[in-house]
Design a protein around this nucleic acid. Sequence first.
DNA 1: GGGACTTGATTATAATTCATAACCGTTATA
DNA 2: TATAACGGTTATGAATTATAATCAAGTCCC
Lengths: 173, 173
Amino acid sequence: MTVSKAAPINAAKASRPARKEPAAAAVESTALQLGELSEHLGYALKRAQLKIFEDFLRCVAPLQLTPAQFSVLMLLDKNPGRNQTEIANTLGILRPNFVAMLDGLESRDLCARIRSTNDRRSHILVLTDKGRAVLARAKKLVAAKHEARLNELLGPANRAALLAMLATIAKEF
Amino acid sequence: MTVSKAAPINAAKASRPARKEPAAAAVESTALQLGELSEHLGYALKRAQLKIFEDFLRCVAPLQLTPAQFSVLMLLDKNPGRNQTEIANTLGILRPNFVAMLDGLESRDLCARIRSTNDRRSHILVLTDKGRAVLARAKKLVAAKHEARLNELLGPANRAALLAMLATIAKEF
DNA sequence: GGGACTTGATTATAATTCATAACCGTTATA
DNA sequence: TATAACGGTTATGAATTATAATCAAGTCCC
């Protein structure tokens, strides 16, 4: 839709005394109307997603993890012994792009590539101890700050309903 | 989070007769577990958003409009006489990036920049007749194919609830 | 066993998107 | 009138997403 990270600073520029206006009833430059746009799910979805990611970044800033990196660590933790292709595919990351991402995580000693003995082409991915520790801290931060805030805003029931609908869309659409 | 456009092709590779396995109970390479990841709103949000945009693109393909371009046309239609900064800001587009985007729309004769007589620095944006026509067709396509499909999947009430929650997040978070 | 084919990881590379700083002409203000 | 602020633009860089090609290792099959 659009919607970059840049705050939609609309703020009608704090009422100044006045402005020269053509003549007829001064329009006084009010806030813009989104109109039907606000009824479009894609638009709302994108804006919400940006906000959520922004907040995620903030909450987990001390650990320097992006949402993408977090998702990789989560997946490695839950699925030890898988190779790059499997992890990348389930996250929707293209294999070529996953290489640099793993390089980053591995250079920070959060995970490691281990040449498989079965199939010496493939790299088994594992969390390091540090990786597990960082992930644990990240989960705590996310739960305590990020998801908690959402629960507060929407209420647990609504939050669950939202999650379910999003999952439905992701799966069935 | 991650989640590129690439389909998370997990498909466990159609059962072949067998495979050499280390020894102990063959693990048979089953689908990966998302685990707690599926409980994280950001993850679900991102995946849903990608699906929605993908479908939007498909539905409106005959008109060659991206979600971002669509949102601009919608906003111009609802808010005639505004300048670039105002439009860009309310959509969260950075002004520098908006220039090329407008160049594209203007070169297709969907909108026009008009030098304001009040303030000769600013460009008033207006939809052309063609722009209005294209927008009208786009709205029809989106309503008939895209949003209709969502309604079908979620039901009108749920769809409305989803929209409301997303708007809440975008606004208050 | 050896050639043809497939697969996992990688490189190279391009297109798109998002972000920042600097600039020019115009307007407001001290 | 000089200075600052503003709207639009350029230039540019980082990050994200995508495709094709390469290399080594495995599978298939005669």
